[in-house]
C-alpha cells in the first residue's frame, strides 16, 4: 500500500506527517485546548486568588478610592501602588479582589444555568421525540412559543419584582430560557435515530425503552450535547451580564457585570477610570473567546470533514 518507504522525507513532507498525526487524535485539537486553557485560567484565578490575595478587599471602603493600576496615574496624579496592583474603584474596593471573586461567579451562573437548561432539554427532547403523539405536540408548541419571547424582557420584570436575588436564583431564572433550543435539537436527533437500524435491532433484542434511550441513543448524541451545552453557557453568561449591567443582578455579591454597572453609574467613563470598567470587560472577553474556541474545537472533533489536512 505505501510507497517510497525508504526515501528520506523532505521538510514539507515531515510537516505533513505531523499534521496527519494531529489529525489522528481529534481531541488534540489546538482550538479546543486553547479554549479550555482560557477557561481553566479563570477558574485558577478564582481558586489561587483566594489563597494568595485577600478576598475581603471586595468590601466597600476597604481601600483608598479610585487608585490606578501600578504604572499608571489617575486624574488626581496619584500613582498606582503594589498594595492594590490593579487599582481600586470609586467605592474603595480592590479591583484584583473584585475579579478574583467576580469572574468565577459569572462563570458559575453561566454553567449552572445551562446545566439546568440542558437537563430540562434532554428530558423534554427525549420525551417528545420518543413518545411522540400529544406529548410531542405539547412540548414542541411550548418550546416554540418560549423561543419567540425575548428573555431579557421577562427577566427584567422578574428580577425587579424579586429585588435582591442570589446567584443560584438568577441561574434558575436564566435556565428557564435556555432549554428550548437543546429540546428542539435533541427531539430532531431522536426522531431520526428512532428510525435507524440499530434502534430497530435493539427493539428486536427486547430492549426496554430506557435502555434504548440511554444506552443506545444518548451516547451517539454526546457530540451534539457538548456543542449545545457550550452554546447555552455563552447565552446564559450574556443574559446574566446583561441583567447585571442593568443593575438587576445580585446586589451584594461581586460579579463582572455588577462591577461594570457600578462603573457606568459612577461616571467612570467621564472620569477616565478605564480600569474600573476595562478590566471586567477584558475578562468577559477572555471567557467568551474561550467558549468560542471550545465550540469551534468540538465542532472539528465531532465533524471530521472540518479538520484540515494541510
Amino acid at each position: 500500500m505505501t510507497s517510497q518507504d525508504n526515501v528520506p522525507m523532505t521538510r514539507a513532507e515531515k510537516q505533513q506527517a505531523k499534521r496527519l498525526k494531529r489529525f489522528d487524535n481529534p481531541w488534540m485539537n489546538p482550538k479546543l485546548l486553547w479554549g479550555l486553557g482560557l477557561l481553566l485560567a479563570i477558574v485558577a484565578l478564582g481558586l489561587l486568588g483566594r489563597i494568595f490575595w485577600d478576598p475581603d478587599l471586595v468590601f466597600t471602603g476597604s481601600a483608598p478610592l479610585k487608585l490606578p493600576p501600578v504604572g499608571f496615574e489617575n486624574l488626581r496624579r496619584q500613582e498606582g501602588i503594589w498594595d492594590y496592583p490593579l487599582g481600586t474603584d470609586g467605592g474603595g474596593r480592590d479591583m484584583l479582589a473584585m475579579i478574583i471573586v467576580g469572574a468565577p461567579n459569572t462563570l458559575f451562573v453561566g454553567l449552572l444555568a445551562s446545566l439546568i437548561g440542558m437537563s430540562i432539554g434532554i428530558f423534554l427532547g427525549f420525551s417528545a421525540g420518543f413518545l411522540g403523539g400529544r406529548i410531542d405536540d405539547t412540548i414542541r408548541v411550548l418550546a416554540d412559543v418560549m423561543i419567540t419571547i425575548p428573555p431579557l424582557l421577562i427577566l427584567v420584570v422578574f428580577q425587579s419584582a424579586f429585588g435582591d436575588v442570589t446567584l443560584t436564583m438568577m441561574a434558575l431564572l436564566i435556565a428557564g430560557f435556555v432549554w428550548q433550543s437543546p429540546t428542539r435539537l435533541i427531539r430532531a436527533q431522536v426522531l431520526s435515530m428512532k428510525q435507524s437500524g440499530y434502534v430497530q435491532m435493539a427493539q428486536l433484542s427486547g430492549a426496554s425503552t430506557g435502555h434504548i434511550m440511554f444506552r443506545e441513543m444518548l451516547p451517539n448524541l454526546v457530540p451534539y450535547l457538548f456543542g449545545s451545552f457550550i452554546a447555552s453557557v455563552t447565552t446564559s453568561i450574556v443574559t446574566a451580564v446583561g441583567l447585571e449591567v442593568l443593575g438587576l443582578g445580585p446586589q451584594r455579591i461581586p460579579t463582572l457585570g455588577r462591577t461594570i454597572y457600578e462603573a457606568i453609574n459612577a461616571g467612570a467613563l467621564i472620569q477616565n477610570l478605564w480600569w474600573w470598567w476595562g478590566i471586567p470587560t477584558l475578562l468577559l472577553a477572555v471567557i467568551f473567546i474561550g467558549l468560542l474556541l471550545i465550540n469551534l474545537g468540538l465542532d472539528e472533533v465531532s465533524n471530521p470533514r472540518l479538520r484540515k489536512l494541510s
Binding site: G197, L204, S205
Partner: peptide
C-alpha cells in the same frame, strides 16, 4: 415473541450502533 422472531435488515451499515464495538449487537440480546 422477540426471542423467537428475529430479523436481518437491508442496510448492514445502519444496524450497528457506532458507539459500541460490534460484539454489543450479539452480546446484548
Amino acid at each position: 415473541f422477540r426471542k423467537n422472531v428475529q430479523a436481518v435488515f437491508q442496510d448492514p451499515y445502519a444496524c450497528f450502533n457506532p458507539f459500541y464495538r460490534v460484539n454489543h449487537a450479539l452480546k446484548f440480546p
